[in-house]
């Protein structure tokens, strides 16, 4: 401080103040410009989404109604509904979550907390990151060979769930690792100092504290999976299916049933694709309505995640 004062002491103090002021103003201006730029880009992308969504809602408006959600597909556009599609999408997402979450979190925990730093781990890490960039149709082909034919799961919800889980695993793993890495080192050290084992540190502290970030990763992955068509068509999802899978929850003991996993199915994006490519223009309205519903489903999924994350944040007090 004193050194800098000494070095400028021979310059008139007003000049120094002027120069400082000018540079300060310039920085502020740049700052503001950046804010404007950022806001413009943000609004442009939000506006695109909003326009897209409103356009779908406007085009599909005549079809919104109870019938649309409780009717099966039909050759008659007015009678056709998305029942088998939205139920299929929900069940496939359920299967995807059940596979992707435990495997993804376990992989992330292993890589961050347990894995030794050697060439083997490095290879795994590079592969996981690269897998995130593999086109989804490739996963579809892999799944067709592995799940559908080799493991004989057939064209079932289980095959689709496993395929999509595989597809989003890299996303879940990378996001979970980031979240785990963000837990401060001293939390772990404090737990170790109190005599906790590595498992206890991981299970009681690291994973709960990072669950917000893990959940975000999972939701980003699921949002991608819910719109996938290519791998699902490859493994043989159907375009016309006028019955529902067996319900997972029954009224008799043991209340839970898993036969739905082996049932044939269709999903929302396939139903949309099928309607878009029909000659009869009345189906375009159905496609728009289905698109709006798919967007709402994705947003609802995100909403649930934000709420859950908020609940978790409140519980963390350090």
């Amino acid at each position: 401080m004193s050194a800098s004062n000494a070095s400028v002491s021979h310059i008139p103090s007003k000049l120094v103040a002027d120069a400082a002021m000018k540079s300060l103003q310039r920085h502020k201006l740049i700052d503001q410009l950046f804010v404007i730029l950022g806001m413009t880009i943000l609004f442009a992308s939000l506006l695109t989404l909003a326009v897209l969504f409103l356009d779908l809602v406007r085009d599909g408006a005549p079809r919104f109604g109870w019938d649309f959600f409780t009717n099966f597909p039909s050759r008659n556009a007015q009678r056709a509904g998305i029942l088998s599609a939205w139920v299929g999408t929900c069940l496939v997402m359920l299967a995807t979550v059940c596979v992707a979450m435990p495997v993804g979190v376990a992989a992330a925990v292993y890589l961050e907390e347990y894995a030794p730093k050697n060439i083997f781990t490095a290879i795994i890490e590079i592969n996981v990151t690269n897998l995130a960039g593999v086109p989804s149709i490739i996963y579809g082909l892999l799944a067709l060979g592995l799940f559908v034919y080799k493991l004989e799961l057939g064209q079932s919800i289980a095959s689709a769930g496993l395929t999509l889980a595989l597809l989003i695993l890299p996303i879940v793993i990378v996001a979970s690792r980031e979240a785990i890495r963000a837990v401060p080192r001293n939390i772990r050290e404090a737990a170790y100092a109190l005599g906790a084992t590595r498992w206890e540190v991981t299970a009681h502290h690291v994973v709960p504290y990072s669950s917000g970030g893990i959940l975000t990763g999972l939701i980003i992955g699921l949002s991608r999976a819910i719109g996938e068509t290519a791998p699902i068509i490859t493994i043989g999802a159907l375009a016309f299916i006028a019955f529902l899978p067996t319900p997972p929850i029954g009224s008799e003991f043991p209340y839970l049933s898993f036969t739905w996993l082996s049932d044939p199915f269709t999903v929302m994006p396939i139903q949309m694709f099928n309607w878009v490519s029909r000659p009869d223009t009345a189906f375009q309205v159905n496609a728009a309505a289905a698109g709006a519903v798919l967007l709402v489903m994705t947003l609802a999924m995100n909403g649930i995640a934000i709420y859950v994350r908020y609940r978790f944040r409140k519980k963390i007090n350090w």
Binding site: M93, L94, V97, C98, P248, I249, I304, A305, V308
Partner: peptide
């Protein structure tokens, strides 16, 4: 929580 949410979504639909 998230599983319960998904499950309930599905069951509401199926029970209809």
């Amino acid at each position: 929580t998230s599983l319960a949410a998904l499950l309930s979504m599905v069951t509401i639909g199926l029970s209809a």
